[in-house]
C-alpha cells in the first residue's frame, strides 16, 4: 500500500454521525436535505454540495462579501455561517433572484450600467444590493445617515448612502461608480 494514501472512502459514514448532521435548507424556494460535516459553511454547501456556484468565495473569512446571499430576508456573508446552525433557513442566492427569464430589477440595472467587469464580485454585489434595499426600506440607518433622520421611516438612498451601505462588498475591478449608478436606478 502506498503509505501516502489515507483511508478509503468506505471508512466514512454516509449519514449523520458525531461530526455530521442532517439538515434542511430552503434554497431559492426548493427544500434541500443534506447531511453535512459540522465544519461546512453555507457557502461550501451551496458551491460544493449543491452545485450552486453563483455565490463566490473571495476570502472565506467575511472580508470581501463575494459570498453574500440572503438568509431569512437579510443579507449575510455565507462563508461565515455554519450550515449546521441554519437548519430550516430560507436562503436566496443570485440564482434565485430572476423570475424565470425575467431578471430581478437589480440584475437588470447592473447590466444596463455595465456595473461589472470580471463578474466575480457581482453575485455578491447584487444580493447585497437587494438585501440593502430591504434594510433601507425598513428604516435601518447607516453610518452616514443624518442623526436627525426619522427613526423607522424608510431611509432615503442617495449616492453616499449607497456607497456606505455597499462597502462590505469588495470589487477589485473597480466597478463601484457603476454599481452605485445601478442601485440608484432601482432605489425608491
Amino acid at each position: 500500500m502506498d503509505p501516502s494514501r489515507g483511508r478509503d472512502d468506505g471508512a466514512q459514514q454516509p449519514g449523520a454521525t458525531g461530526d455530521r448532521s442532517t439538515l434542511t435548507l430552503h434554497i431559492n424556494g426548493t427544500e434541500q436535505t443534506l447531511t453535512l460535516d459540522h465544519r461546512t459553511t453555507v457557502l461550501d454547501a451551496l458551491r460544493e454540495d449543491l452545485g450552486l456556484t453563483g455565490a463566490k468565495k473571495g476570502c472565506d473569512h467575511g472580508q470581501c462579501g463575494a459570498c453574500t446571499v440572503i438568509v431569512d430576508g437579510r443579507r449575510a456573508n455565507s462563508c461565515l455561517l455554519l450550515a449546521v446552525a441554519h437548519d430550516g433557513a430560507r436562503i436566496t442566492t443570485v440564482e434565485g433572484l430572476a423570475d424565470g427569464d425575467r431578471l430581478h430589477p437589480v440584475q437588470e440595472a447592473f447590466l444596463d450600467r455595465d456595473a461589472l467587469q470580471c463578474g466575480y464580485c457581482t453575485p455578491g454585489q447584487i444580493c447585497s444590493a437587494v438585501g440593502m434595499l430591504g434594510e433601507a426600506a425598513d428604516g435601518f440607518p447607516s453610518h452616514v445617515t443624518t442623526r436627525t433622520a426619522p427613526v423607522s421611516a424608510p431611509a432615503p438612498l442617495d449616492a453616499p448612502e449607497i456607497r456606505e451601505r455597499m462597502s462590505g462588498n469588495l470589487c477589485r475591478c473597480g466597478a463601484y461608480p457603476r454599481i452605485v449608478e445601478a442601485i440608484e436606478d432601482v432605489a425608491p
Binding site: T93, L116, P123
Partner: peptide, 17 residues
C-alpha cells in the same frame, strides 16, 4: 453590451473552481 453580462448577473458564469 458585455456578451457574458447576463451569465454573470445570474450566477451561471462558471469560474475555474
Amino acid at each position: 453590451a458585455r456578451r457574458e453580462g447576463r451569465d454573470k448577473v445570474t450566477g451561471t458564469a462558471r469560474y475555474a473552481a
